[in-house]
Amino acid sequence: MQVLHTYQELQVFRKSLDSVGFVPTMGALHPGHASLITRSKQENPQTIVSIFVNPTQFGPNEDLSRYPRDLEADLKLCQSLGVDGVFVPTVAELYPFEHAITLNPASDLLGHEAEHRPTHFNGVLQVVLKLFNLVCPQKAYFGKKDAQQLLHVQRLVADFFLEIEIVPCEIVRDHDGLALSSRNVYLSASQRQEALKIPQALERMQIAYQQGMRDTASLIRIGLDTLQGLEVHYLSICNHNLEPLAQVKSNQTLILCAVQVGQVRLLDNLWV
């Protein structure tokens, strides 16, 4: 496995490869990331992983400085999974200019996360485009947990005519049902118990839907009742263009949820 620190090293390495699958990450790798890497290994001759905590997607009062980092453990995991190359750039490597070119996300895909993190998707698209241009993958793997991010990346690829297939991957959950996230390490034992209301709310909404409930207002009430005691930033039911729905439509509906538990902001969702 090659560990690459500069874009020149990456470019030389990339020229030695054929078809590449790509898994962009911010490190602090967990089994959710491992599932993306495993999927890439199954579908591509070579796999490249990037590890980069991207400063442009953090707001001024967010956790950039304390975001979990464990490069040694991350590299060991990548090695064990058979990754071919890991790109570990510095901030200066990816942002060489004081005044960087930015991207504005599509206005029809805003709301939800963008209301709470106004500059987040600008930073996501900025770094993803840079990484795509450097890695030149045939396929790139993104988890469905960050549903709105996935939609923005898919739009980026379509709008800029990038020859990259975006592969959405299923949410991986811990033994207790909590969606895996690098930020879960911030939760105390009691906070984690409170956070379990999130997957429980989505499960109860799904059961009600399976039993025939289609009215989104009624489904949201079920979810909010389960989330009582937590600070709910949003619990929304919309289509895959993030337009609100009055009735759930099979294979066309997203239930999006963001909840504050202590100092930790947790995302989860359900693709119906």
Rank of each mutant, 00 (worst) to 15 (best):
M1G: 12
L4Y: 05
L4N: 04
T6H: 09
T6E: 05
Q8G: 03
K15G: 08
S16W: 00
S16C: 01
V20E: 00
V20M: 01
F22P: 05
T25N: 07
M26Q: 02
A28H: 08
L29T: 05
L29I: 13
P31V: 06
H33R: 06
H33Q: 04
A34T: 10
A34D: 08
S35R: 01
S35P: 00
R39N: 04
Q42I: 04
Q46V: 06
Q46E: 09
I48T: 04
V49I: 13
N54W: 05
Q57L: 01
F58D: 03
P60N: 08
P60K: 12
N61W: 02
E62G: 00
S65P: 07
R66G: 01
P68S: 12
R69G: 00
L71H: 03
E72I: 07
E72H: 07
A73Q: 14
K76S: 14
L77F: 03
L81H: 09
D84V: 06
G85W: 01
G85F: 02
V88A: 09
T90K: 15
L94S: 05
P96M: 12
H99E: 14
A100T: 15
L103P: 00
L110W: 01
G111R: 10
G111Q: 10
A114E: 04
H116T: 09
N122L: 06
Q126R: 15
L129P: 07
L131R: 08
L131P: 06
L134E: 02
C136M: 14
C136Y: 05
Q138T: 14
K139Y: 02
A140S: 14
Y141V: 14
K145A: 04
D146R: 03
D146T: 07
D146S: 04
D146N: 08
Q148N: 12
Q149E: 04
L151Q: 02
H152T: 00
I164W: 00
V167F: 05
E170I: 11
E170W: 03
V172S: 09
R173G: 03
D174R: 12
D176H: 11
L180V: 11
S181H: 01
S188R: 11
S190K: 13
R192C: 09
A195G: 06
L196K: 10
K197A: 13
P199A: 07
E203F: 14
A217V: 15
S218W: 05
S218A: 15
I222A: 03
I222G: 01
D225M: 09
D225T: 13
D225P: 03
D225Y: 08
T226G: 05
G229E: 03
G229K: 09
E231I: 15
H233P: 00
S236P: 01
C238G: 05
C238E: 10
H240S: 09
E243Q: 15
A246Y: 12
V248G: 04
S250R: 15
N251F: 10
Q252L: 12
I255D: 00
G262Q: 06
L270F: 12
W271A: 11
W271V: 14
